[in-house]
């Protein structure tokens, strides 16, 4: 469609720019607030430009203990979040790609039964099964450990289903060619299926990493030890710090820090992600 109507162009651009501003304004506010002293956000007018406390605020956040969040430095919480998010992401991808491989490429009794059992767990997110899961984790002695944070969140019906759908589009002749080329089941998986799933894995990695990073309820339940707190929990604790006024400049700073890893993941993987969407390698 070739159109040349300057007014329309102006209008559409105005709408787009407005949308961008609308989305970015809260982020801007947090960024600005995190560079001011404690009182700045309680006074009117709220500052819209950087203050002079950035260095002090962020170094206190990252290395110093935050009494409002249980005396744990945010750096530590970030590390905990990172370990949890990576554990969940890698675990989910590993488990679901293997499950999908088994379901698509092997004939075993009750194959479809197992598939539907996995599928049905879509109806059982953490929130629904939280009490029995907590019970199991307690009995396994996994409270206050990375294992307790990660393992119950690893099974993923969605990812299994996605990989299954992808595997079903891989031509049978490729499997047959590999069989003639003397590739056993594991060889085929490593040498052919896994490289072909590269873009799918990248897309899932982005989605699952953000899912893991944003976990709140489950970490809140299984950790009582401050050294295992995650950053999302930390923000929440700072907001509800009892009698005192909320320390908005620290809260905003923590929020800014908590944004960084998901942004890095998205930026680093978006190339592969988009590639996976636009080009089929089959």
């Amino acid at each position: 469609m070739v159109e040349n109507r300057p007014l329309l162009k102006l209008f559409t651009h105005a709408v787009l720019i407005l949308g961008v501003l609308f989305l970015c304004f809260p982020v801007w506010m947090s960024l600005v607030a995190s560079t001011h002293g404690p009182g700045a956000l309680s006074k009117s007018p709220i500052p819209l430009w950087f203050g002079d406390q950035a260095w002090e605020n962020y170094s206190q956040l990252i290395f110093g203990g935050m009494s409002e969040a249980g005396g744990v430095p945010v750096g530590m919480m970030m590390l905990n979040s990172l370990i949890m998010a990576l554990g969940i992401t890698i675990g989910k991808i590993a488990v679901s790609i293997l499950a999908a491989y088994a379901i698509v490429y092997f004939r075993f009794p009750f194959r479809m039964g197992f598939f539907w059992m996995i599928f049905v767990t879509l109806m059982l997110p953490v929130e629904v099964r939280i009490l029995p899961t907590f019970d199991v984790v307690t009995k396994l002695g996994l409270l206050n450990s990375y294992g307790g944070l990660i393992v119950p969140l690893i099974a993923s019906a969605t990812a299994t289903f996605l990989f299954r759908q992808f595997f079903l589009t891989v031509p049978d002749e490729l499997v047959e060619a590999a069989r003639i080329d003397r590739a056993g089941p594991m060889r085929f998986f490593w040498d052919i299926l896994l490289p072909l799933s590269r873009t799918n894995i990248a897309a899932l990695f982005i989605i699952l990493f953000i899912y893991g990073w944003n976990q709140y309820l489950w970490p809140l339940l299984v950790t009582t030890d401050e050294s295992l707190y995650t950053v999302v929990m930390g923000i929440q604790r700072m907001v509800n710090s009892g009698e005192q006024l909320p320390v908005w400049h620290y809260i905003m700073g923590t929020a800014m820090l908590a944004l960084i890893p998901p942004v890095i993941v998205v930026v680093a993987m978006q190339n592969l992600f988009v590639k996976g969407l636009v080009e089929s390698e089959k």
Binding site: P171, D191, I192, L196
Partner: peptide, 10 residues
Amino acid sequence: VFQNYALYPH
């Protein structure tokens, strides 16, 4: 040799 070649695309 297959009809649709069945080459490993990667």
